[in-house]
């Protein structure tokens, strides 16, 4: 029997090889045949989830509700100290100093990331902006979102805060942060599907112990993480409820 592992398509391109290294590590330590399947976009990954093709997933918080409540997944861990926060930024040359100054009809540069888009839209809502009165311009990466702002062909951009912080100083110096979310509850997490349910405690323990060993820390660092923290079932339910209030 072999199992399918997949990663939320919003992973940073710098870490793609890290996920393959992590998958090899996981196979070796669990003795399970786990195949890493990368999907190009959220749409194709969601079809795979719907078809019950996925057994282990590093999931975007936006997909947690379907995974847990419809597909019987259980949370394992989240990256240490890490939450998904969002930055709404403009070019430094833009006259806009405050979200409240934004007007209907603006162009918003963004990626496909569903949780970032949701939080970004909530932060625009206080200026009475919504999907019906703005124009979304979707790019493949946050560097491209930044370029749209620098070229002045978008008015504001949505960034995963981590990705914004990783932009070069040269680019960051030409951008102005209008708002940075401080939500602290929304995060990606590793989740285990029903076919692997009996491995939950074993895998969980392996992950939580990873940072204790030098070699394993190298695997973690190839993902950009310093360790995993446990996610309890109720913590995940709380996050899903919270996401639910934000989806309306």
């Amino acid at each position: 029997m072999s199992y399918i592992f997949t990663v939320s398509p919003d992973f940073s391109p710098d870490h793609i090889s890290g996920w393959y290294i992590f998958n090899t590590w996981l196979q070796k330590h669990t003795d399970l045949a786990i195949h890493l399947e990368m999907y190009n976009n959220f749409h194709s990954q969601r079809s795979a989830i719907q078809n019950d093709s996925i057994d282990l997933i590093y999931a975007n918080p936006y997909d947690a509700a379907i995974l847990v409540r419809d597909k019987g997944f259980r949370p394992l861990t989240k990256p240490r100290g890490c939450c998904d926060e969002v930055i709404v930024a403009t070019s430094i040359n833009s006259p806009v100093q405050d979200i409240a100054n934004l007007q209907p009809g603006i162009k918003v540069a963004t990626t496909e990331d569903p949780d970032v888009n949701m939080i970004g839209m909530i932060m625009l809502e206080s200026a009475d902006l919504n999907a019906a009165n703005i124009e979304l311009k979707t790019s493949d990466s946050y560097v491209l979102v930044a370029k749209h702002l620098l070229r002045d062909d978008s008015d504001v951009g949505f960034f995963l805060a981590e990705a914004f912080d990783d932009l070069s100083t040269l680019i960051k110096n030409q951008l102005r942060i209008l708002v940075r979310s401080q939500i602290s509850v929304i995060h990606h997490s590793l989740m285990l599907g029903p076919k692997l349910a009996d491995q939950h405690d074993l895998i969980s323990r392996l992950l939580l112990d990873m940072d204790a060993d030098e070699k394993n820390r190298e695997v973690l660092s190839s993902l950009g993480f310093t360790g995993w923290d446990k996610v309890e079932d109720e913590e995940m339910e709380f996050m899903i409820d919270l996401m639910d209030t934000l989806k309306v």
């Binding site: 809502e125 206080s126 009475d128 339910e237 709380f238 409820d241 919270l242 209030t245 934000l246």
Partner: peptide, 27 residues
């Protein structure tokens, strides 16, 4: 601007969660 939802666990309402966001001045 508040959103309130029931917290349903195993089919039972165990409580309610409210999440508030910044309202627009016009609203």
């Amino acid at each position: 601007k508040a959103t309130v939802i029931p917290n349903i666990r195993n089919g039972i309402t165990v409580g309610y969660t409210s999440v508030r966001r910044k309202p627009s001045k016009a609203k």
